[in-house]
Design a protein around this nucleic acid. Structure first.
Lengths: 333, 333
DNA sequence: ACCGCGCGGTACAACGTTGTACCAAGAACT
DNA sequence: AGTTCTTGGTACAACGTTGTACCGCGCGGT
């Protein structure tokens, strides 16, 4: 049985509160008493009960990070940075996986582990602004990802700008039949943003967007990239460049292009978004829009810290993190 | 302010305990009363306070998974499966990252979040058996990974057998100068196991192991694989096959081999261990030892459940999960 | 001798839940 | 009519902590 304050107190011949004071460095305790208590703590291997503490002052020291899937390297890398940033505040991070399932996401919003977590970092997938409006849980929340309306603090790169930059890069290479893999105008906010960036870049450059070159995918993973390439190469006039909505799609596409005997970047150039580690080592290495992940993680955790320090009522704030294009073999020949 | 049981009770004109009974489905409550209470709960948006609950029955519903780095796809994939398995028991998973830093690992062992977590799944990196012997925290623990001594329940694949199978595959291909990348006889248990499997496979096949062909790496990631290949190709008699201790090393190696103009598998065959998603889509795709990750995750969580159900005192149990070799382009030409 | 004060420490209540013990009122037996 | 049982509900204590209020003691100054 784990030792409690009163076990220690009894053994040291002092009151419970004195032990508590020693543990927390509060109140006034004589040097001699302190020594004695500390010895007993050591002896009994006493550790404070976090639940009781939380109950007392309503804080748990735990924040949650809810992502669609932790198996996706982008989210895994982000999680790693969030954990590091949270450490600086003495917080532990609880990772929740929503599978981009609306029901599970709604549960997260409603505070499934309410009172266990002090704050929530949420990467929403398929939720609508209405869902957020219906939120009753009051746990401070910071959104990572796209705008839904000004519903909470938010940190993200500008998906539209990122997609546009990626597409413009392809245009600058002289490509004219540029396909979009993944994003769709009728999808969630991220999907829409990336589609529109792609679309507007084409229009601004005087290209005529073609619906045939848009291959939406529900799940943005390797397999979907492979599948999209299969469809695009079957067209009578196949594309000469691919703008993929994330790196996994792009990496799957690279693999599939090779299998079809298409040369990259000679015949088809490819760009992705996320700049995951894997993209630096693929063959060919992948040109990708690199969001400043560290900045995103640190800002998000910092915003949460602010909210917890009291500014509950202030208006939602937005931070747009920077990005840059990492040009690699898949576009530069 | 969040509503509590007594807020609901006051408003519904019943006792606190009755509300508690409605919430938990315990005790006997009349249909009419139940309806009324449920309406008030809805109205007030009442949610039970997990901390208080935990305090009451000494359980938190949270288990921790401590891994060296969540950014490594193998651990990310494992984490995903653990989360899923834990869900079946109503548990939430808290992910802790140790960075394979002995001090941080010791903290985990000593129950840094003691009383917050009901159980611990631990993937140790650099800790010794002594460290485990010195553990005073009594939180049930299941080890994922290599044997240290029979110090706790453990689930893992047999690293030795896996390494041996991988190496034998290379031998079967007729390769004679087989290098080992990553593992070292003087490393931690995993590293040692993989080295010995490699070594014994060579000896059993009548090959003479050469120290020059062993390139230990502290961190098993892409970059290290690249670096190792640089060193191996500088040898007067470079290898014709690479046994890499994990897939990240192998993928880095594939990339570096290509950069040096070496053909895979013609000139050099490559195998890895872990079978991460990425390995199915690399160029060439990577032959890898595939541990049964789902089985590992489910068994580990199940063992923890057993311990929590009361069998605290029983002797440590070991489960060896299966694996199979996924043969792909990096070895099969 | 008295007051005031700093020091070291204690007692108690409260955080929100839930298990145990109990109770009142009506129904169903002998 | 008296006894027992069932139903629906309540009161209280306890989980382990910590904030607030308080208390006794010795010391220095009047």
């Amino acid at each position: 049985m784990a030792a409690t304050l009163s076990d220690v107190a009894a053994r040291a011949g002092v009151s419970i509160k004195t032990v508590s004071n020693v543990v927390n460095g509060t109140g006034r305790v004589g040097a001699e008493t302190r020594d004695r208590v500390e010895r007993v703590i050591e002896e009994l291997g006493y550790r404070p009960n976090v639940s009781a503490r939380n109950l007392r002052h309503g804080r748990s020291g735990v924040i949650a990070l809810a992502v669609p899937e932790i198996g996706n390297p982008y989210f895994a890398e982000l999680a790693e940075l969030v954990v590091k940033a949270a450490e600086g505040y003495g917080w532990t991070v609880l990772i929740d996986q929503t599978d981009a399932d609306p029901d599970r996401e709604r549960l997260v919003l409603q505070g499934i582990r309410s009172h266990l977590i002090d704050g929530l970092l949420f990467v929403p997938g398929r939720l609508s602004a209405d869902d957020f409006a219906a939120r009753t849980d009051t746990t401070p929340m910071v959104l990572l990802g796209e705008r839904l309306t000004r519903v909470a603090d938010r940190v993200a790169i500008d998906s539209y700008a990122a997609a546009r930059a990626a597409t413009e890069h392809l245009i600058d290479l002289g490509r004219t039949r540029i396909a979009a893999v993944g994003a769709t105008p009728s999808g969630d906010a991220v999907s829409r943003g990336r589609y529109e960036g792609y679309h507007d870049a084409l229009v601004a450059a005087g290209h005529r967007p073609s619906a045939r070159l848009v291959v939406p995918q529900r799940r943005w993973r390797h397999e979907s990239g492979v599948e999209a390439v299969g469809r695009l190469l079957a067209l009578s006039r196949p594309p000469d460049a691919l703008f993929c909505s994330n790196d996994l799609l792009a990496l799957g596409a690279l693999r599939a292009l090779h299998d079809h005997g298409v040369r990259v970047p000679d015949d088809v150039a490819v760009v992705g978004i996320d700049d995951i580690a894997e993209s630096r080592f693929s063959r060919p290495s992948l040109t990708s829009v690199a969001p400043d992940k560290r900045h995103i993680a640190e800002t998000a955790v910092g915003l949460l810290a602010d909210r917890l320090k009291g500014s509950f009522s202030s208006a939602p704030r937005e931070f747009i993190a920077g990005f840059h294009l990492e040009v690699r073999e898949s576009t530069e020949g």
